[in-house]
């Protein structure tokens, strides 16, 4: 088998394009995400047949139909549970979960947090468009308060969730955010996610052109982008802004935006980003940043290593087999039997 694998020509983007017609609305952010996934997958050195894409229900969840790997388009909210079953049954597979803000955070909130805390090696991509698209425009768990939609004509009175905060709270071992419109950053983050071993959570800001167009305008617009986002880079200070002169400093437990060169502030005063901290407090603090007071962080919030669920399960099986005979008869007879003679 090894020889055969070695002789297989390198995979290309085309190998990951299925024969199905893509049926998203013209201009949907999902196209860019699909394209980046299809660009990253052949670069990972994993045979195509080892990939499984699992999704729930929603616009984003149609994605597995368009990627020529094994795939499951399942039930609203349940993808993380079903994907866990796939990974448990065969830890050798590369399992990706495609979900949306309604799918992952509303109907499937329970499965998301438990898959993350178990550290199952799943790459969970949450396409966050802050709206229900497939059901034609109701507010979602990430919609801003006051949002007017078909189901909230008087404005939403639900406070929104912060997906990254949820993931960190649920003990995800890799947490990142990226955006559909910045394909370079998107591709970079997807690659890092693919290489992480453990529960991997990536929030992707994704624009719904029909029901929530320009939801992320403040972080995508050329004029405001630099001031409203901050790119997280491990080991680098938190600097942002059109003129790269703004930074984030900690005052006690409270972060504040400062301007370099003003009031004697230098780079030395700024937080240096460390994505490897065992304590998730700092990453959680970052996850609360949002305009107008703070820039939206893009990049890896936290990436740590700990044994995965499936590896610990495999280890238990190995250990149990060393201790006990795998002879089924021992189980069936048990410790107390008696014989009835002819």
């Amino acid at each position: 088998m090894a020889g055969e694998l070695a002789s297989i020509p390198a995979l290309t983007r085309k190998d990951f394009v299925s024969n199905q017609d893509v049926r998203w609305c013209p201009g949907c952010g999902d196209y860019a995400i699909l394209a980046q996934i299809q660009k990253v997958l052949p670069e990972l050195g994993i045979p195509r047949e080892k990939f499984v894409f699992v999704s729930g229900i929603g616009c984003s969840s149609r994605l597995p139909y368009y990627v020529n790997t094994y795939g499951l388009h399942t039930i609203h909210g349940r993808a993380p549970a079903i994907a866990t079953g796939v990974k448990v049954a065969n830890p050798d597979l590369a399992v990706w979960v495609i979900t949306g803000d309604g799918d992952a955070l509303s109907i499937g909130g329970n499965h998301l947090i438990h898959a993350l805390r178990r550290n199952v090696d799943l790459k969970i991509l949450l396409f966050n468009n802050r709206i229900y698209g497939l059901t034609k425009g109701q507010y979602s768990p990430t919609s801003e308060i006051g949002k007017k939609t078909k189901s909230t004509p008087h404005g939403s009175i639900d406070y929104p969730m912060h997906p990254i905060s949820i993931a960190l709270g649920a003990e995800a071992t890799f947490t990142a955010r990226t955006i559909d419109s910045d394909t370079g950053h998107l591709g970079k983050i997807l690659t890092e996610a693919a290489h992480h071993k453990g529960s991997t959570f990536v929030e992707i800001y994704q624009n719904c052109v029909i029901f929530n167009d320009n939801a992320f305008q403040e972080v995508t617009d050329r004029d405001t982008r630099a001031d409203n986002t901050i790119t997280l880079e491990h080991g680098r200070p938190l600097i942002f802004g059109k003129d790269r002169n703004k930074g984030i400093r900690l005052k006690g437990m409270t972060p504040e935006v400062v301007t370099l060169g003003e009031n004697g502030v230098t780079e030395q005063d700024l937080i240096v980003h460390d994505e490897t901290l065992a304590d998730s407090t700092y990453a959680f603090l970052l996850s609360r940043f949002e305009p107008p007071h703070f820039p939206v962080p893009l990049g890896v919030f936290r990436s740590i290593q700990r044994p995965t669920y499936e590896d610990m399960l495999t280890a238990q099986i190995k250990k149990a087999k060393e201790k006990k005979s795998s002879e089924l008869k021992n189980l069936l007879y048990g410790s107390e039997t008696w014989t009835v003679a002819e």
Binding site: V52, V54, L72, T74, I75, R78, A81, I82, A83, T84, G85, V86, K87, V88, A89, N90, L93, N110, H111, H114
Partner: peptide, 14 residues
């Protein structure tokens, strides 16, 4: 629900 989902994922996987 998750229990059923896990079992289903396992069935798909063989």
């Amino acid at each position: 629900i998750a229990a059923a989902g896990m079992a289903l994922g396992a069935a798909f996987t063989g």
